[in-house]
Deep mutational scan, measured.
Amino acid sequence: VSFKITLTSDPRLPYKVLSVPESTPFTAVLKFAAEEFKVPAATSAIITNDGIGINPAQTAGNVFLKHGSELRII
């Protein structure tokens, strides 16, 4: 599955597209996205474009099915 993750704390709204296997734990996606944007993973969260928080204790495939591919990291 592929996710387009936007960094909301930067006024330029940079984004990265990450492709991972469906079975990947979403905690790993969060950690990798945080490292890519050089923000601390421990204090970061991934939310939907509607501002709904995503529980990272599920697979990337589940997140994709529930929330789609466009996400934000805060």
Rank of each mutant, 00 (worst) to 15 (best):
S2V: 06
G51Q: 05
K31N: 14
T6M: 05
A42C: 04
A42E: 14
F64Y: 09
S69W: 06
H67R: 04
N55M: 09
E70M: 06
D50G: 09
K16R: 13
P14I: 10
G61A: 07
N55P: 12
L71T: 01
S69M: 08
S23G: 12
K66T: 11
D50A: 09
Y15N: 07
K16C: 12
V63W: 01
A60G: 03
T59R: 08
I47W: 08
A45I: 03
P40C: 09
L7M: 12
A57Q: 13
K4N: 09
Q58Y: 09
I47Y: 12
L13K: 12
G51E: 06
T8F: 09
K16D: 03
P56D: 14
L65K: 10
T43E: 15
I73M: 15
L30C: 15
L65Y: 06
T6H: 07
S9V: 09
N55I: 07
T6Y: 06
S44T: 08
F26G: 07
L13Q: 12
N62R: 10
E36V: 06
K66D: 12
F3M: 00
P11S: 04
V29P: 00
K38M: 11
L7C: 14
L18K: 06
N62I: 07
F26E: 00
H67C: 09
A28V: 13
L18F: 08
I52N: 12
T8I: 03
A41E: 14
I52E: 11
A57V: 08
G61Q: 12
A28Y: 14
G68S: 05
G53M: 14
L71I: 00
A57W: 08
K66W: 04
N62S: 11
A42D: 12
G53V: 14
S9D: 10
L7S: 14
S69D: 04
E70W: 03
I73Y: 13
I47G: 13
S69E: 11
K38A: 07
S23D: 13
A41V: 11
S69P: 11
A42S: 09
S69Q: 12
N55C: 07
D10I: 03
K38E: 10
A28R: 12
P40Y: 02
R72L: 05
I5V: 09
I47P: 01
A28S: 12
L18H: 08
N62K: 12
A33E: 00
L30V: 14
I52D: 10
A34D: 04
I5H: 00
